[in-house]
Nucleic acid binder design. Structure first.
Lengths: 248, 248
DNA sequence: CGGTAACTTGACCGACATCAATTATTGTGG
DNA sequence: CCACAATAATTGATGTCGGTCAAGTTACCG
């Protein structure tokens, strides 16, 4: 990944927090978060971070790496619900609903900040701006899911893929995982397939088609957006445009 | 045609709040909500409640009636993102993200409690348990959307329809809009189609197939679940099981 | 009643799935 | 550094679910 994370990352000097996308905090809040954080968890690519039905006592923020939320039907069909990047909360549903209906898996080697679920209430009690941030983050996830729903319901495979590439690129760019329309893709075509709701075979063909149209290139797990305007048009892409967001 | 009627329903004696699904509140919180509520909005079936890109100064809770959240692509293809029932918040994304990327439309004649967006902050500042409720509600919506995503991505048309019927029935039942496995469906087949991501023609055929299998009946806009176990199995349905939820 | 919108039905078509066979690519131990 | 296996990606042939088009048939409403 882009930067090397030391053994323990101090919240006050957190490299993520320095990025301009993230809202700055009062010292009081920062001190609380620093205290709220009880450790770091490092997992290898492919490892499960939170399992459905398993009530982990933790809440996490991704510090470094890619993860994805997914969910399976009884017969094994699997759907990727969303991807998660540094700054994203993992386990919010569990923390507030006390129930988790999906699994979160690391896509790359990933480092997470660990928080204790049983202290979540004190956020609401004593740190209103952090409480607001929690709601903000949940609402933003909702907005992203809305985007995926319209993709799955209405777009063709080609359009869906175009949309997903733009979406992932933009999210990756804000936290420094992509730049110059190039993104190191940590996912296999089968991850894409599970996110798009199409088979791996068709994903391969669809990727090829996007390349033949000279909209993107895909080589050695590096995706490059060659013609952004055309790709956005194809996908009827609308960007999220949150210049500034909270980080817990 | 919309009209605003001030205070027909008092929060202290709100009929919704009496239902056992809803968590009871401290007097202090109830008084706040009562004060937070600035009026009621009644709209006819088909009317827009909140429009994408239109920054309404309001946040709503549905008091009576059905609504749906939806979103369109540039070329007019439309997707229903989710349905909304009494007790559901409308405009939460707008309230916290200050941006709305979907439209909310009334399905039936609908009454909503009206709150001022600019006072949302005071919830977080002074009423932590209400703030928690906001996050809870957002996380639950997320969970529902997760369910729709796996439906759209992995289930066949028949399975999707089965899932949606069970989902809507269960939600309707908790607030008293359905009972004994029978639901007065306020939506047309084209609403269903837009939610399922299939064409109206295919919705008709799929509905027929569910009836031929004797899993449901559909007559005069009344859906009856005839064989719940079989329907759940077909849909690989998992229920939400929140025995108690907050109401703002 | 007549007119419009919602639903149904049939014939045909196309996007994507499935099956199957190669061909990279990656990882492992000798 | 090379076999070797295992996994991931590509390609082609064929099948099917759901889309499209078009013509009814309701049901609803002024």
């Amino acid at each position: 990944m882009t930067e090397t994370v030391p053994f323990q990352t101090n919240c006050q000097t957190c490299p993520l927090r320095r990025k301009s996308v993230f809202r700055s905090l009062e010292d009081k809040e920062l001190d609380f978060i620093s205290d709220f954080k009880t450790g770091e968890l490092t997992v290898e690519a492919g490892a499960t971070i939170v399992q459905e039905e398993n009530k982990s006592p933790h809440l996490y923020t991704i510090l470094d790496g890619w993860a994805f939320r997914h969910k399976a039907l009884a017969d094994g069909r699997r759907q990727v619900l969303n991807f998660a990047l540094p700054g994203d909360l993992v386990g919010l549903q569990l923390a507030v609903l006390n129930e988790m209906q999906h699994t979160v898996t690391a896509l790359t080697d990933t480092t997470l900040c660990v928080f204790q679920r049983d202290r979540v209430w004190s956020i609401f009690k004593d740190y209103p701006s952090l409480a607001f941030s929690m709601t903000w983050i949940a609402a933003r996830e909702e907005q992203i899911l809305d985007g995926h729903i319209i993709s799955l319901g209405q777009r063709s495979a080609l359009e869906r893929l175009a949309y997903l590439i733009l979406h992932l690129y933009d999210r990756a760019e804000t936290i420094g995982y992509a730049s110059n329309q190039a993104l190191d893709a940590p996912f296999s075509q089968s991850h894409l397939s599970d996110a798009l709701g199409i088979t791996p075979v068709h994903t391969s063909r669809t990727l090829r088609k996007l390349q033949e149209k000279r909209l993107i290139s895909w080589a050695k797990d590096r995706i490059r957006i060659l013609d952004r305007d055309a790709l956005e048009k194809l996908a009827s892409y609308e960007s999220m445009a949150d210049e500034c967001r909270p980080l817990i």
